[in-house]
Design a protein around this nucleic acid. Structure first.
Lengths: 368, 368
DNA sequence: TTGAAAGCGCTAACAG
DNA sequence: CTGTTAGCGCTTTCAA
């Protein structure tokens, strides 16, 4: 024994002499907790009952004398005791908390979170948003790791945002993927009409008179990115236009990863007159790079994005984009998880929400 | 084909039907876990070693034969094993995860979250944002409950957003409060120059020529709300104006709670020509109510907010507001938690960040 | 009505 | 080098 603090540590509200209810035969317990939260053991000791009794009282089980219950409750109050989520969930099979797994808290995932948060109201569940190994966000499989670490113990069900892998259909807990890796197959999913939205975006540009249009794609492993590119190509071809292969680049949905391709796009002599970026964040970055390069948006370059996160309206100029119902997607994913939790209807469902064009100021006819 | 159990059952709890792999001798093919995540016990069983050995291998401890380690690692891979955060954190004293406690995921807290998420990059910590009893968000003391449930077991340190109570100075884990209840005292805090910002907002309105100005206050229990109202009053008085008591109402920082007072403000015959709302969300709601009432913003009514969340720029018309450095506040809070974690410098620090006026289109001189 | 004891999955002493 | 053992805080039989 080395670094133990003294015997007479006084916990919350426990007097030094308060050596209450030692074990049978006079094993001298140290007094209350030296520091930190009170545990069920502290409550039991101070109340002079067993931990089992405290547990029963706290959980409202029957078979405890009214007087005892009252005394225990008093101590609970006095010590500010609250049961540890961790210990409780290790023992029980249910925690009443829904997890949301994200690679990062950025505008897309936080919009989803707002929708989920609003929808959880009144359901009796709590929300736990987890962001595993931040920084290595490109690390494929982050969601498998997070899932394994949390599922089955901490959380009863889970919403995974933009998973990098096809998820196991059944990992013990209900799983719903938003903007999934594989498209509508495997586990339950919620996504948008990416194909239609991308067509709409491209048609908007074409309708404005653009013919030389660049495409800055998203994360190659995501179904949404695949469909958006497809929608772009389809709309181009439908208009009799052939996408210039040099003008179709990948930006990974992220400003940092789209910086290079954006420069490549805008610095070429025969640069496009318009760019369709696969999400708002990279579209906003395109606007910034264009402006640094001395190009005016939309006079010299039209830019359209995808998502309609609040930041889109806040950019200068405000970004024309394809809106997804982000809040609704989050709310729907939550509803699905809860319904999977509460019924045995294990048929994985796939919900697809509509998209719509939001015209703001970043697009205009090409310069004459 | 058939799997026989080894000579020695691995203890009580093994059901007759359980597939138990042979002990260190039986080289039958491994029995996979029945369902759900694989536990350390599954790995040990399949690899034919003890759980202690698996633990050592997984945690990179010394004293394991290379061959054994390799075999274990193989099984870990095969089973997709990942240690349970819950079980691990119950045993260890450190989890490497920082908690963020919020009452709700709304624009203010999610902006903070974005800043925290960006700042955690490369620190080696993970992020866990927790939203306890959603729905009863006005329940005073939600943060005490969440803190007790998580601190000491699940999280090493915590950032609390807009706590409803004075927090205990030391609850076992480092605590930093953003937009605190008590102002710069007690635990470490991060906030903005609320007083100066509110003055700036009011002066902006006065500078435009408004004299009849309404004030829609924030959550009475928050220091920020107190200071913003004070700043409003000070600026009014400094300009020789006396705030009409009928025009100073409380909106609780929330659209739902500010709806009534907003109507009260705008439906009176002698309604103000301008309103300063204590945060953006209620300011945006003021704009909506005004428009429903047939008032034009800013021609008939000027509106200014506070916070500069992305939604402010997205409103119609775009909201003039006082910007706080929300991302920076989150990042700073995280830095403080981590530094408290890694040093013994327990002197609670208080960081106050500047605010600035962002003029957009919701304010203009009063109609002649 | 109460408490002793087992055990959730894991780590850390300490033996062999 | 490896396994046995003891618990982290809690819930839950099962006996007393």
């Amino acid at each position: 024994m080395s670094v133990h603090s003294g015997t007479s540590a006084s916990g919350p509200g426990v007097e030094p002499g308060d050596d209450v209810a030692g074990g049978p035969g006079g094993s001298d317990h140290p007094a209350a907790p030296a520091v930190g939260r009170a545990t069920i053991t502290d409550v039991a000791r101070v109340a002079g009952v067993s931990v089992a009794t405290v547990s029963k009282v706290v959980n409202g089980r029957y078979g405890v004398a009214a007087a005892t219950a009252e005394r225990v409750l008093g101590v609970v109050e006095e010590l500010g005791y609250e049961s540890s989520l961790v210990a409780r969930s290790l023992r029980r099979r249910q925690t009443n908390v829904i997890g949301v797994l994200v690679a990062e808290f950025e505008p897309f995932s936080t919009e989803l979170l707002k929708g989920i948060s609003a929808a959880i109201n009144g359901t009796g569940y709590e929300l736990l948003a987890y962001c595993g190994d931040a920084g290595r966000t490109d690390h494929v499989g982050w969601e498998r790791r997070s899932l394994s670490r949390l599922a089955g113990t901490l959380i009863d069900g889970v919403v995974i945002v933009t998973p990098t892998l096809a998820l196991p259909e059944h990992d013990g807990v209900p799983v719903v993927a938003i903007d999934p890796h594989t498209g509508p197959t495997g586990p339950a999913t919620v996504d948008s009409d990416n194909l239609g939205g991308a067509r709409m975006a491209t048609e908007h540009l074409i309708g404005l008179g653009h013919t030389r249009i660049g495409y800055l794609g998203g994360r190659a492993d995501l179904e949404s990115a695949r469909l958006r590119e497809l929608g772009f190509r389809e709309a181009m071809e439908a208009a009799g236009l052939t996408p210039d292969p040099d003008l179709v680049l990948e930006g990974g949905y992220r400003p940092d990863r789209s910086d290079r391709p954006t420069h490549d796009l805008l610095e070429r002599p025969d640069r496009p007159t318009a760019v369709f970026a696969a999400n708002d964040l990279s579209a906003i970055h395109v606007i910034q790079v264009a402006q640094e390069l001395g190009l005016r948006v939309p006079e010299d370059l039209s830019v359209i994005g995808f998502d309609d996160v609040p930041e889109a309206a806040a950019s200068t100029p405000p970004l024309t984009t394809i809106a997804q119902s982000l809040h609704e997607m989050g709310a729907e994913a939550l509803r699905m998880v809860i319904s999977m939790l509460e019924s045995d209807a294990t048929q994985p469902r796939h919900t697809r929400l509509p998209t719509r064009l939001v015209e703001r100021a970043s697009t205009a006819p090409p310069a004459a």
